[in-house]
Design a protein around this nucleic acid. Structure first.
Lengths: 125, 125
DNA sequence: CAGCATCCAGGAGGATACTG
DNA sequence: CAGTATCCTCCTGGATGCTG
C-alpha cells in the first residue's frame, strides 16, 4: 500500500528527516561516534590505543568500525606511519572540526537538562 | 543507579559519552525522534493522524512507540480529549521547546554539509 | 480515530581469538 | 601496535490485523 520511501531500508545518509538533521544525525548517531569525535576535538590527534583507553567500554572491533565510518564520511583523517611498530593516528578533518559548534550545543543541552531531570527526581521509569 | 558500563547493554540515558552529549543524543536518536520533534516545533500542537501524514513512511507502531518515549522523556505532552471519536493531541513541553536551538544547529550543519558533500561529488563509496 | 498485539528481519554492537 | 575474523545477542524498526 505504501510505497517504499526511497528504496527500501535506508542505510545511512539516506535518512529523510525533515531536513538535513537526519543527515547530521546519521553521521554522529550510534553509541560511539559522538564520543570519538568529542575526544578528537578535545585532544586533537590521537593514536589508536589512546582512543581505546580514552573511551571506556569500546571494543576493538567497534572502535575500528566507527573510525572507518567516520573516515568514509570524511570527518576523520587516518594517518599511517610506515614504521615498526606500526603507528596510526587519527585526526579530525576540516569537516570534522566544523562539527564542533553543533556538538557543543548538543553537549550543552545534555549537560543542562540531564541535571534538570535528575533534580526533579523520579521520572519513574 | 548507574550500571557499570562493562555490565551489558546500556539502554537509554545510561549512555556514557564524554559528556551530556550522549544523553541528548539518546533522546533524539533513532530514526524518527528528530523528525517528530521537528514537526512539533514547526507546526505546534498536532493530532496523531496529522503526525502520521506529516511523517511519510512511519508506521503506526513506530509513531506511537516514539511518541511514548518522547512523552516518558518529558519532551512531548500527550493530551487526550475524552470525546467520541477520540482525539489526542501532541505538543512539545517546555523541555521539548528548549531543544529548538540544538535541533536547529544540527539541522543547519546537515543542510550546509550535505550540499558540500554532494557538491564535491565522488567520494568513491 | 488512535492506538495495541504479534510476528519477523536486519543490523548495531559485544566477546574473544588470531595476525602482519 | 593496530588491527581482522568469527560468532552471537539484542534492539530497532517494518508489516499486518484487531479494538475501544
Amino acid at each position: 500500500m505504501r510505497k517504499e520511501t526511497s528504496s527500501n531500508a535506508l542505510n545511512e545518509k539516506e535518512i529523510n528527516s525533515s531536513c538535513g538533521m537526519g543527515y547530521a544525525l546519521s553521521l554522529i548517531g550510534g553509541r560511539w561516534k559522538s564520543n570519538i569525535l568529542w575526544r578528537l576535538i578535545l585532544d586533537g590527534k590521537m593514536r589508536y590505543n589512546e582512543l581505546r583507553k580514552a573511551i571506556p567500554g569500546i571494543s576493538e572491533r567497534m572502535l575500528v568500525a566507527q573510525l572507518r565510518e567516520l573516515e568514509a564520511d570524511r570527518l576523520v583523517l587516518r594517518i599511517v606511519y610506515p614504521e615498526v611498530p606500526p603507528r596510526v593516528e587519527y585526526e579530525l578533518t576540516a569537516l570534522g572540526q566544523s562539527m564542533r559548534p553543533m556538538l557543543q550545543s548538543i553537549s550543552d543541552w545534555g549537560e543542562a537538562h540531564r541535571k534538570t531531570v535528575e533534580d526533579e527526581g523520579g521520572l519513574g521509569k
